[in-house]
Write a protein that binds this DNA or RNA. Structure first.
Lengths: 331, 331
DNA sequence: CTGTTAGCGCGTTCAG
DNA sequence: CTGAACGCGCTAACAG
């Protein structure tokens, strides 16, 4: 229960003023060699560590970044969270984690988040409402939406080029001659779902193939499973399914194999999205569009920390990962 | 970029002293009805929200709890994280997330964690070294180890009764007449691995069955897969495998089915641990020992927030969840 | 019951 | 180059 040593203590030991110590640790202002050394030895002596809380109060700028998530149990997000925290820690920043668990929305959480004088906010859930966006601008806190973007052009966004990816999936299905296709989507309003669907259906139209059946609801295994059952009941002739993420896709594969007794890829081919850790398992071997997570994070943090305030959307390309659920073209 | 309203502002609007406002928001001390109302209207007027940072500085006690994790990508931990943050948020507490990514250890992280004047620390990674334990005691910060316990009897711990569970697994295997068994473990030093192994092997010895083959390394799918291949190469007659967690178990199942062409459960039965989200999927249908996560969290937070400082280990019972990888006894 | 005062630990003028 | 002094927003003792 002892108190930590403060700059005042260091100052006393070094026989200088507290202000000098402050200048030393911050590196701002100038100190004589003499004083610098005395302070340094004093700091080592008492093992002084700056108090981030006090610093934040005085600064009005903290070293913590808030992350608002709602989908931690979707296996792709732990990967994201892992990489973000790791990257942030190397930058000397910390992560304050907020869980937007329904019915709690980002809008509800935002005022709370802002109270912590965070350096910035990363949102992987829904997108910013205009109300929350205003709030952030108001308090001068940068926000970046990760894997989705705001329809109202506020804040920063990083996302995969979902439209292009959707088009490519259509091309792949076309390449192997699929005629009856389906799209099993995630949350209808979310930008990534809309874009993946759009790229897919638009390209299918261009190719003059019959429009795919569409069913969308949420990004879960259970939904993928249930949607597959429903879709194939309506149309047993489907031979190619594009799933908006890997959770949905693995659910679809299980439904196909274990409930509908179909073979993947012989009877039905599937393509997912994300390349999350489960997708590569032997039980699934899912062909998928890998999101360039590390690069996305790099871009997100760049905007967050070095952004000029102008809303911006950075689009990165996804990478096709071929596995057995949808074989690669013969080389 | 506007400044937030402070107690001082509220005080000015209400025509009272700032201290009065402080008493109002904290609920401590007494105020006249008169003043109370004036303050309340002033607060609503300017939409005053207390500043947690400033409060922390003044208090020497924060409203944030640190969580130190290293295994976020193991699907059981997102569940834990999700539930902890949710529970904490309802208590008005926030989560500061630290990633002990190798080679960074808990010991390295602890001094950093402590600087944030956190209310407490939850560790799901390794257990406290004596050095770190001392540090926490020194600063009066309570620590609880989640799903593991300290060998040196410092800090709080919540864990499943792993020994009992291990014994029960042995009984189950014995019930169906298995003779050649194996244990695929996680990180050798971790208490939960040691206890699961111990309960299992001890009970097997009591039952006078041949001792199981043992192989342990880490809690991952890949390890489960690799270990299975290696074990069955040495002894193809194995018919029952106990895996220290579900990640290992699902890896083992895939190795069995896809590499070794064995049938589960006809040729080999398996039991895992945790009951993580993947275990219940159609592709695995894993019989497992479910950890009572919610109750564990409840106990963990109870000790963290209301503990008396005495080291304590709370052991909760696991629940057998029967699925097809090891059928339940006929009723 | 209420206001005044003194910190919490640090950054930042502002004189010397 | 350096130290004294003030403020960040809030809590807690202390008088009235």
């Amino acid at each position: 229960m002892k108190k930590a040593f403060t700059q005042k203590d260091v100052a006393k030991f070094a026989g200088v003023s507290q202000a000098a110590v402050s200048r030393f640790v911050s590196g701002k202002g100038s100190l004589s060699e003499e004083v610098r050394n005395r302070i340094l030895t004093a700091i080592n002596l008492v093992d002084y560590k700056p108090d981030p809380i006090a610093r934040n109060l005085s600064n009005r700028q903290s070293d913590i970044v808030a992350i608002v998530m709602a989908n931690i149990t979707n296996p792709w997000y732990p990967v994201v969270l892992e990489l973000i925290t790791r990257r942030l820690q190397t930058l000397g920043l910390q992560v304050l984690l907020f869980n937007a668990t329904p019915p709690q929305t980002v809008d509800d959480l935002m005022p709370l988040v802002l109270r912590y004088r965070v350096r910035g906010v990363i949102i992987t859930t829904a997108s910013l409402s205009s109300k929350s966006a205003e709030l952030c601008v108001h308090w001068g806190v940068p926000v970046v939406m990760f894997n989705r973007y705001a329809t109202l052009g506020a804040g920063y966004s990083v996302s995969c080029d979902n439209i292009a990816a959707g088009r490519k999936v259509a091309d792949e299905f076309h390449r192997i001659g699929a005629q009856e296709m389906a799209y099993i989507g995630g949350i209808p309003e979310v930008s990534n779902n809309r874009d993946r669907k759009r790229g897919f259906t638009e390209r299918i139209a261009e190719l003059r193939i019959r429009p795919p059946m569409i069913s969308e609801k949420e990004y879960t295994y259970d939904w993928g499973y249930a949607a597959t059952l429903a879709l194939f009941k309506k149309n047993p002739a489907i031979t190619a399914v594009f799933c908006a993420d890997d959770e949905i896709a693995t659910g679809a594969i299980d439904a196909l194999r274990f409930a509908l007794k179909k073979k993947v890829p012989e009877d039905v081919v599937l393509i997912g999205f994300d390349d999350h850790p489960i997708a590569s398992r032997a039980a699934y071997q899912l062909t998928t569009v890998r999101q360039p997570v590390e690069e996305m994070i790099e871009q997100a943090l760049d905007m967050l920390l070095n952004g000029n305030g102008e809303p911006e959307l950075r689009l990165l390309e996804g990478e096709f990962i071929y596995r057995s659920s949808m074989p690669a073209p013969a080389a």
